Amino acid sequence: MNMSAVPARVTKTNTVVSFRGIEKSYGAFQAVAALSLDIRQGELVCLLGPSGCGKTTTLRMLAGFVEPSAGEIWLDEDNVTRVPAYRRDVGIVFQNYALFPHMTVAKNVEYGLVNINMPKAARQARIAEVLRRVELQHLADRYPRALSGGQQQRVALARALALQPKVLLLDEPFSNLDAQLRVRLREELSSLIRGLDMTTLFVTHDQEEALTLADRIVVMNKGAVEQIGTPEEIYDSPQTRFVAEFIGTCSLLEGRVDEGGDFLSERGLRFPVARRPGAATAIIRPEYVRHAAEAPGAPVHRAVVETSEYMGAATRLQLRVGDARLLMDGRYAPGRRPRAGDEIDIVIDPTGVRFVTDGN
């Protein structure tokens, strides 16, 4: 697939999917709690969270496989809350692709078109079109067993797209692929979806997938929504402790901001911040902890390197500053990487410090 012209993220206006106070309970267990969300035309929204957080249940309620305990689901101007799955205008790519092993690629794609009684000539034209879009036209006569994992995924995607749905649902479609193939295919999928202006709801527990693919991310935890925002908002401005810890890597320091504008952690680390006085938890991403030489004039802290983890492009240091601990990412020339036990002078960039006040 051509990756040279991936459309930029664009803010959409007209709503295609609307969850209105959706809930799902199984006896005393609440799988999804009061979820409200609008998804706009052409928008790729990712439901992100750990296993059991309610993201797949939410997707299956939109698909019509699970009936909500409360709330409504709307597609365009239609309330589809009680509409059966086969009458909803959605396409689904499952985690295991669910291809028919006894059917060729072309027959797998054709299956849904036969069910809607599309004339044969129109079916053949549609099959050719979608296989061309996913670059599998040369494999139309192959069976799934003769395809790679990435090719099977694209067949499943072509089958969903053949019905020209209003909404595409993707349930962890990369989870069965190896790391390198997963990266390549998510780039291809993004290019395809954006080229089609396809409204998409994507489920994953992989934060990297969510950050790279989504226009907006819905972070879920224990059935509830923790935060909804763009990838930049979710990473740079987490609203809860859970979001801060689940997305990326960070150091969390309990403490308070004094009247002089300094944050003083419970373990004695002090640095200036731009925040009103009061108790808070400071969130510091590793990229905002730097060597003192990089920020002349900033308050300097002497740190002891506890661990030094080489990660290729950067080295992750775990530092002890007095009784406090911080993570730091640095780039070093060969042979210059700090080792455990070394002492270095660091600064904390106050522009990158965020705060949460919740106990989650």
Rank of each mutant, 00 (worst) to 15 (best):
T281A: 04
N108C: 09
R40G: 11
R241H: 12
R184E: 15
Q239V: 14
I22T: 03
N221D: 11
R339I: 11
S191C: 15
V109T: 11
R285M: 01
A179K: 08
G71C: 12
E23W: 13
R40Y: 07
A333F: 06
P338R: 07
T56L: 02
I348V: 15
V300N: 07
T230E: 04
I193V: 08
Q207A: 09
E187Y: 09
G49C: 07
T307P: 01
F65L: 15
F271M: 12
R256Y: 13
E259C: 02
C46R: 07
G223F: 03
G21C: 09
D349P: 03
M1P: 02
I22S: 00
L326V: 10
N96I: 10
I247A: 00
I234W: 00
L213Y: 04
M311F: 03
T212K: 09
C46A: 14
V300P: 00
R184H: 13
I116E: 13
A122Y: 03
Q164L: 10
L37Q: 12
L35Q: 05
R154V: 06
R354Q: 15
T56C: 08
V218S: 05
R123V: 05
A313R: 14
Q227A: 10
P299C: 04
T240Q: 04
E43C: 01
E309F: 00
N79Q: 07
L147C: 02
I348A: 01
D236H: 04
L181E: 03
L44D: 01
M311S: 07
Q318A: 14
V16L: 08
A122W: 01
D76H: 09
L264M: 00
T357Q: 15
T200I: 07
D197W: 03
D236F: 03
D206E: 07
A333E: 15
A210V: 00
V347T: 14
